[in-house]
Structures are given as C-alpha cells and as structure tokens.
Design a protein around this nucleic acid. Structure first.
Lengths: 240, 240
DNA sequence: AAGTGGTCTAGACCACCGC
DNA sequence: CGGTGGTCTAGACCACTTC
C-alpha cells in the first residue's frame, strides 16, 4: 500500500483511511474483506487492522457481526458525531460567520455557585467575561464565562476571540465537558440584547469543561435564541 | 489475582475492575502502578492491561501522560456519561416514577418529513403513537413516535410500556441516535396537556434511532416541560 | 540513562455464523 | 466444517518525561 511516505501519523490511522476509502466504493451492507485478508493486502498485523476498524465502527461507518464479517453501514446520519466545539467552531460548521461583542470583562470573586462548579473556594479570584455572540451579524447568543485561577495571567486574555483556542495555545486542552440544556423564557434584558420578544423561548446551556486530569478549566452559561439555534448531537451506545 | 472463577466476562474487563478498585483507594492525581508492573501483578499481558486502562480513560476515571504515567482523575463529574436512554430509564435515573397515558395509537401513512427521516417512501405504512408521559403523576412530556415497517407486527406492540424495551426484546437493539434539541413556546393544545401556561418555554427533542447497521428504527418528537426537565450530557473529545 | 506510555508484530486459541 | 470476528500472549521498538 502507499503508506510508506507518511511517518508522522500512526499506521492504524493510515490503515483506517485505506479501509474507509474501500468502504466508500461499496454499497451499504456490503461485506468488506476479512481482517485476515486486509492484513495481508495492507501488509500489517491483524491487531493494526482491528484497531483501524475499531475507529471506523466508533464513527458509525462500518459494523461488525461476530462470526459473519465486517459490513458497510447505512450512511443515514453518520458524519457530525459530536465534537465539543466552541461557539466559533460551531458557527463556522453551520456556515455562518461568528463575531463577538464584549459586554464586560473583569477579575472578580467567585460566587458560591461558580466556586462549586469550578471546584474552588467562594471568594477566590476568577475571570468573568460577558459577551454577545453574533452569527452573520445578528445576535445569536448571550454568554457568561468564568475561568478559574490556574496559573494564567488574566490580563493576557483577549476577550474578543475564541477562548478555547487561547486555552489550547496555553496547554489547557479541554478533554471533557458536562452540559445541562434547559428551555427558558427570555426576560427583558436578555430579550433586548438578543433582539427578541420578551418571553420568547430560548436554550440555556450551562457547561463546565475539564482537562484530561478531571480539573475544571471553564464554566460557561450561554443563552441561545430559540428561533435560530438548535442543539444537534449524535449519541452512540459505545464509546462511553 | 482472583479472576480464575469467572469465565463469562473477558479478562480485560476483570483487569479494568481490579485497576478501578485500586484507583479508588488512591487520591486524585496519584500515580497508578506502571503498565508493566500491573501486567506482572495481575499476571496478564501488557495488551490486556492497556485495553483495560483504555476503558477507564474513556470513562474519565484515570488519565495517562505519555512518558510519565497513569494517574487517578479528579472525580468532579465522572459517572453519568450519556447513555441513550428511554423516557422510562431517564425518569427512573432521576428518582421519579414514570407512567404513561396513550393519546392515540394507529397505523398510518408516512408524511414526507417522517419518511425522509426514516429512510422510507412517503405513504409507506408506519406505526404512529402519541403519548403523555408523566413523572410522579404529573405531566412531564408529550411524545409522538413513528416506527418504520421493519417486519414487526404493529398489532403486537403494547403502547403503554417502554418501546425501547420491546424493541430490544425483538432484536432491534438501538446502537446510535441523532437528536436535535430546540426551545419552543407551548401552544394552547400542548400547554393544556402539560398543565402549563400558553407560551411557556419547553424543550423539543427530535430523535432518530439507528441499529448498528445504520438503519433507522425509530423517529420520535418529544416536548418536555421547561420548568421540570433539563437535558444533561457529558461530551468527551475522544470516543467519537 | 532509566522508566513511562504509544505503537506494532506474529502467532495462538476461542466463540460464533453459515453451509 | 471452514471462515469470521473476539480475545490474549510475549516480545520488540519508538517517543516522551524525568532525573
């Protein structure tokens, strides 16, 4: 196979790509070559083939039946699994252009609720940021973010751009996030900021993000306009 | 180790349990024994140890740092990853008692939208079920479910109990589901059924469920009372 | 340099499916 | 029965962190 030019990516990913390409030429529910065949054709060990297929199964591209074979899945949904995206990434993915208006930005003391969610003490210094997020120029969401004091100089944060990107750049990689999604009626202030009628339905998404060590690195509360925003997700039984 | 009495469960799960127990005795961010140590102590190969740890990483119980070690994660959230549950399971998990009132139940012809989502032709026979779901006796959600004609005799379905359980029993295992969550204002009919004010905010969850071959096996639209229901989920960057 | 996790191999046996 | 995926082993080398 033509994998000998790439040294940076692990072999099982290259194998996964190769199998994926082959699956693309077949119809749904067609059988793929057996693992032992693939292993010979691609000149890798069976474990590498299995690891590659494991990825494809998780992505919903193929499925396996014990004793029978590996088959191409029906592509009904597939794609867009669920990525843990920032507002910026989310809007870009929907084909919209995101912009941001900073409403306030300050270092304050954590309230009891914020402290509890961030695993710190009430009164500890936190960075609080309130922003209006727009898509294609019109208001999409109101957002209030709290960052815990984890060794970052709050003064160096640019409140107008993607926080996730800035966190990544400083080695804060977000690995997991817990969210609660609720439906609320907009009050006067929110309605005015979002250019909506008072009482209009909106989504309130409350999120705490964690790094891979399970430490909270962000708390965010976002209110999305109900008429412009829907929350899409694909749940799979595995992978959890 | 004491794994010699169990033959039904794969060894890597038993190893995962053993490592999990050991992690439970440590504090967050404490180091676990290295993979090579565990492999000797538990008398298994390294691949089995790694596969066990891989599960624990996905569950958020431990984390690994290349070149450094495997550590106990901060248990901040952990648990309740995201299960793909039915209304019944969901309510039980919240400590509520679910009951159901069947509003209508009939075999009809698929509308264009339902047909598109279920991957069938408009006009094909589908089973349509409308139910009011209650928790601890008070209304929680309004639900409309469509089932495609996949070889099940619709007449044998009990509309008053969990559809997921009945589907499982007939070998329809749901493997994946795509959902859209939106915020809506209740109209008169919905408000009356849910014992809410007209215009109150509610969550509308639209779901298509798939088996492991990617075939749609259910389409459901559910409207949850906004004052009683929130949608919790944990997103992890991996496992997708 | 020593120790850690990350990748990969070659081979084995088991459990399940279909003929 | 032969072929399939599912599990497991023993060993190797690489990449990275820590000292």
């Amino acid at each position: 196979m033509s994998m000998d030019t790439d040294t940076s990516r692990p072999k099982y990913e290259l194998v996964a790509d190769a199998i994926d390409r082959r699956a693309g030429e077949l119809n749904p529910h067609d059988a793929l070559p057996s693992e032992r065949e693939l292993m010979q054709q691609l000149n890798v060990s069976r474990m590498t083939v299995r690891r590659a297929i494991e990825q494809l199964v998780r992505r919903g591209l193929v499925y396996q039946v014990h004793g029978s074979g590996t088959f191409v899945a029906d592509p009904a949904v597939v794609t867009k699994t669920l990525h843990l995206t920032s507002f910026t990434e989310d809007m870009v993915q929907r084909g919209l252009t995101p912009t941001t208006t900073v409403l306030s930005s300050a270092t304050t003391q954590a309230t009891a609720e914020v402290a509890r969610r961030l695993g710190i003490q009430p009164g500890d210094e936190v960075f609080c940021l309130e922003r209006l997020r727009l898509a294609d120029g019109s208001p999409m969401a109101l957002e209030r973010v709290h960052l815990p004091p984890l060794g970052i100089d709050f003064a160096t944060i640019d409140p107008a751009t993607s926080l996730y990107a800035q966190m990544e750049a400083r080695g804060w990689t977000v690995e997991r996030a817990a969210q609660t999604i609720e439906a609320v009626n907009l009050d006067h202030t929110q309605a005015r900021a979002l250019d909506q009628a008072v009482g209009a339905a909106a989504l309130r998404v409350t999120r705490v993000s964690f790094n891979d060590a399970g430490q909270p690195v962000e708390h965010a509360m976002t209110i999305y306009r109900g008429d412009r925003y829907g929350y899409d997700l694909v749940i799979s039984r595995h992978a959890g």
